[in-house]
Nucleic acid binder design. Sequence first.
DNA 1: CCAAAAGTGTTAGGCTTACACCCATGC
DNA 2: GCATGGGTGTAAGCCTAACACTTTTGG
Lengths: 225, 225
Amino acid sequence: MDEQPQLAVSTVIFSLRDSELWTPLVRRIRQPFRDRWALPGGWVQPQEGLEATAARKLLETTALDPTYLEQLYCFGDIGRSPSGRVVSIVYWALVRPEQAELASDGENVRWFRADALPGLAFDHNRIVEYALWRLRNKMAYSSIAHGLLGETFTLAELRGVHEAVRGTTLDPANFRRQALAGGSIVPTGEHLVGASHRPPALYRYVDDALVDQGPLLVSASIRED
Amino acid sequence: MDEQPQLAVSTVIFSLRDSELWTPLVRRIRQPFRDRWALPGGWVQPQEGLEATAARKLLETTALDPTYLEQLYCFGDIGRSPSGRVVSIVYWALVRPEQAELASDGENVRWFRADALPGLAFDHNRIVEYALWRLRNKMAYSSIAHGLLGETFTLAELRGVHEAVRGTTLDPANFRRQALAGGSIVPTGEHLVGASHRPPALYRYVDDALVDQGPLLVSASIRED
DNA sequence: CCAAAAGTGTTAGGCTTACACCCATGC
DNA sequence: GCATGGGTGTAAGCCTAACACTTTTGG
C-alpha cells in the first residue's frame, strides 16, 4: 500500500433540458463500485495535458463536445477510494442543448437531474454538489450562461438559464436591462420567427466575452524566465 | 519517459510587512533549477492528505504555521518541469505578522515582495501571480483579512490590510461603516494604548467568521452513500 | 493649545426592485 | 379583438462615495 497515488481526471457536465439542470453519468463496469453511476473520467496520460484528458475522456465516454471547460478542484483525501490512494483532478463543463440531444441515454450513460442524483461511486456526490455551487456562483457575476445556450438566443432564453440555475424567477424587465447593460451581448438584428405572440429579438455574445478566470487564461504571456 | 506523473504539493504564502505583501521562497538545492528560488513544497505521501502535506512542508521548510490554507489550483502542463511530468497541487496560505517575524531569512529561505519577485523555478512566477489574483478577489467579498491580522486589531490596521492588498487607499469613515455592518467583527471593549493621539478601539473576528469556500468545508456531512 | 488620528453626520448619485404600461404578433 | 409574451417607463429604496465635522489623545 505504499505505492504512489494514482492520478485521475473526472468531469462534471451540466446541460439544460426543460428548464432543469441535467448531468450525464457513466455506469462503472469494474470494481470498486461496479454498476454504480459515476463521473466520466480516466487516468492521466504522461504526454497529455490535464484539460486535454478531461476533454478527451468526456468525448470518448459521453460523445459530448463542451462549450466550456474549467478546472473545479483536486480531490485527494486518503480514504476516497477503497482500492488505494487516488487523486482526482476534477473539471466541470457546460454543453449546449443540441449537444445534449445528440448524446442520448444508453446502456452505460444516463442523464440525471443535477439536484436529484442517486448514490454515486466514490465521493462523487460531494463533487457534483461543489460543481453546482460553483456554477451558481459564477452565474451571478459572469457570462457563463453562454455555455448553456446556442449561438443566438432570445432574452427570455437567457433569463431561463439564469432562472433554472439560480432556482428563482426573475423580473423580465429588470433582467433585460441588466443583461444589456453588461455589454457582453448584442442584438443580431434578427428576430425569432414561428412562435406565438410578438417575435423576440435574437442576441449573441460578443466575441471577447470570456469568462473571468483571472490570470490563468493569459498565462503563456506572463512567464518571465 | 512513459512513466506515471509525479505528484507534488506546493504552497504560496503571503504575509504583511510594512504595509506590503511579502512571500517566502526556498532555494532549490538540486537540479533542475538548482539555486533558483521556488515555492516551498514536496512530494505527496501515500498516507497523508493533500492539505496536510501542504501544512507539513510549509512548517518544515519555512517554520511557519498558517492561519489560513486553501487549495489554489492544480498545475499539470506537460512542459512545466524539464525533468519529467510533474503535477503540482498548489495551496495558498496566510500567516500573521508575528509568525513572519519569527521565521526570518536564512541561507535557504528568503522573503520577497510579492509583486516584485525574481525569476523563479518552473512556472512558479505564474502560480504566485494567480495566487495574488485570488487573494485580491477574495479580499473584496470575504473576511479573509483575518488571516493576516493578530487576534485583536484596530480598524486602521484592518483597513491597512485591505489597502495593501488592493493597492488603493480607502476612506476611513466609509471603511469603518462597511466593516462594522458586515457583522463579522465586534469590539473587544479594549482600546489600544501607548500610541499618539486618540486611542482606537480594538476589534476581533466573531468565532464563526469562516471564509466562504462553498460546500467543501462541510463536506463530511454531505456524503450520501 | 495644536496636530493628528478616531469616530460621526450628511448629502448626492448610482444601482436594484417593483410594478404600471404600451407593443406586436398568432389565433 | 384578445390573450400573451416582448419591450419601455418610472419612482422608491438601498448602498456607496465624498467630505464636513466633532472627539480624544500626546506633546
